[in-house]
Design a protein around this nucleic acid. Sequence first.
DNA 1: TATATTTACGCAAACGATTGAGCATTGCGA
DNA 2: TCGCAATGCTCAATCGTTTGCGTAAATATA
Lengths: 377, 377
Amino acid sequence: MQIIIILRTNFIYLRHTSALSLRNMKETLASLAQKTGFSASTISRVLTGKSEEYRIKPETRDIILKAAAESNYAPNIIAQNLRTSRTDTIGLLLPSVANPYFADIASIIIKEARKFRYTTMVIDSDENEATEKSSVSTLIARQVDGIIAAPSGTQHELFEEINRKLCPVILIDRYFVDSSLPYVSTNNYLGSIMAIDNLIMNGHTEIACIQGAINSMPNKKRIAGYLSALEKAGIRDKATIVGNEFSEQNGYLETKLLLNRTERPTAIYALSNTIALGAIKAIKETGLNIPADISLISFDDSIYMDYMTPSISRISQPTEEMGKLASKLLFESIQNKTRCTTQLELAPSLISRNSVSLPPRPDVRQEGRHDTEQRQQ
Amino acid sequence: MQIIIILRTNFIYLRHTSALSLRNMKETLASLAQKTGFSASTISRVLTGKSEEYRIKPETRDIILKAAAESNYAPNIIAQNLRTSRTDTIGLLLPSVANPYFADIASIIIKEARKFRYTTMVIDSDENEATEKSSVSTLIARQVDGIIAAPSGTQHELFEEINRKLCPVILIDRYFVDSSLPYVSTNNYLGSIMAIDNLIMNGHTEIACIQGAINSMPNKKRIAGYLSALEKAGIRDKATIVGNEFSEQNGYLETKLLLNRTERPTAIYALSNTIALGAIKAIKETGLNIPADISLISFDDSIYMDYMTPSISRISQPTEEMGKLASKLLFESIQNKTRCTTQLELAPSLISRNSVSLPPRPDVRQEGRHDTEQRQQ
DNA sequence: TATATTTACGCAAACGATTGAGCATTGCGA
DNA sequence: TCGCAATGCTCAATCGTTTGCGTAAATATA
């Protein structure tokens, strides 16, 4: 996909931006007008690179450019915003910036935006729907030119209304079913299939799934994939779904409960990296070994997963591509004043490591192990 | 420390913000003036909660409030900004949002800012000084009311000039020596002492240190603490300092080189979580065990460090306090139109886990171990 | 020479709020 | 009945740009 975006910034300002000293707040078009003897209109036109279009005499242009440069003039962006009702600003809404997965996405989008000369306002909704709503209102009031959002809420009306009336919205990671809002996400369904197939191939049939925010689309899709994979293997009736939050604590508590069951699962499928961490903690505390006693596979990639013992098998999402694609779609929409309807699901990949092995023999399954010795297989 | 900050937002807008529907972009003070028959001035004063101060008749006030509410009026923030030259916006400058440590800080500051009704513009400077400079200029041009920064560069003039002339600046994590700029940081020197003392207490004398961005203040202080702790133990001459970047790759490469030396260190002190990850990878690849063959201690806390095998001993920084304090200092400065000169170093804490033990006996030190079996001790 | 066109810019009205100063109207005391 | 203060508002300037329209001077065309 190639998208051509014409940057409308002008070289005069650019030169200034890269200059050493700060913008001279005292200098305005009016003061420059006084200095040079030309009108503010003319100065404006020269400084926005429209001198040819408006047939400004080259000599005049040079005088103005010189005066602007010497006085360290830079335009008042707020005034520009008011006049043009453009802000060169985008809003980025995330459920949790501290979550490594979303931090990655934030980092990429912020940098992409910078390339396109946009500044990013970041909202951390804390998975709270009320916070999300009011924060989005703030973004709108601040007249952002576009929004990239991983919504926590379930109702799409707000975002659709914004996209229809105010500015382009691109969803990332999470999206709404029955909505035409554009999104860039991972094929979460496929990801689950890959994860569960991997467990089944290793002989597991007692696979418990610890889910996250129940109403979020990724969670729903992952659950659907989980069920479908079980179905395919003819063990749909063995489905076990617990939990309700993308948090370490949720992973920990639900794992504790799972391990306490008389029919303990032989494998756990954690629907996020945070859940996986909680699960690991609970498993270790119980004195069980991964993968000898219980296998573990997780959604989300994170650098540290390779460094744990055992290293964690996982479904990796292409965060960089997602961030870049979402940015491109957004800036294309802004540029062309159109609404895009692209709905993309990128393929996840299975990173197979050492947290999955054959299930323990049935007769030892309920014993548990209380030594702290661990074997890496 | 108690700081009282009077929020100047008014309840009318608040009520609107939490309302369901979006701000009606068509409605302005002028249009409301037409509708109600009062002037824009009066409407403005009522809507900014100044009806008593300006002796607006209660009936008038109610008429105006009703009209505003019914038409879903919300003020044009950009126009307010231009008129009042306040933006209720802060800038947050970080070297790397993807780094879990800074992601934590970002998350906290964004949420704190929200509490004070500020929106946060986030910059990811990518540890690049040029990016940092131009991004900060952008923030200034956008007239942020204040800046919280973890600067990558070494020259403080830019930030000092901003703090003097334009808006309050609070540094976080990193700061400048010989500068009166306020900061909130960790006592990195003390952190190093704690880390090295821990190693020395365990009998280590061959302690190599892998550093990060050499010119950053935290790095300098950590190095100073490292040297000082060695000095105190009378083994200053054994100091080994390598590396130059807060990255996993740097940790990996430098560890590889260290392990290749004829006199292999018995312990590695990694100056960041990312460096530690790289070190672990290199150590594992070499077939050595932590801590049996080589001990490891790291700066920075991260949730996953407890889940690795062995769990990693580390120096934890109080990120939440740092973020909250920096926010408080900033908003206090903005509110009081003063410049604060507080320079705070919070105490780090040692989280002692299983990556540090006695050094291996000298006669086996150079052997290396090539089995992949690991023991947790 | 009269008219048309081009050149090179200026005027003034936006954008939508805030705010100091001012101006009717009413009430009250003397 | 007059003066004065309090009441309850409006006027108009301002923040710093951008931009549609206009126009004087210079040049080209008929």
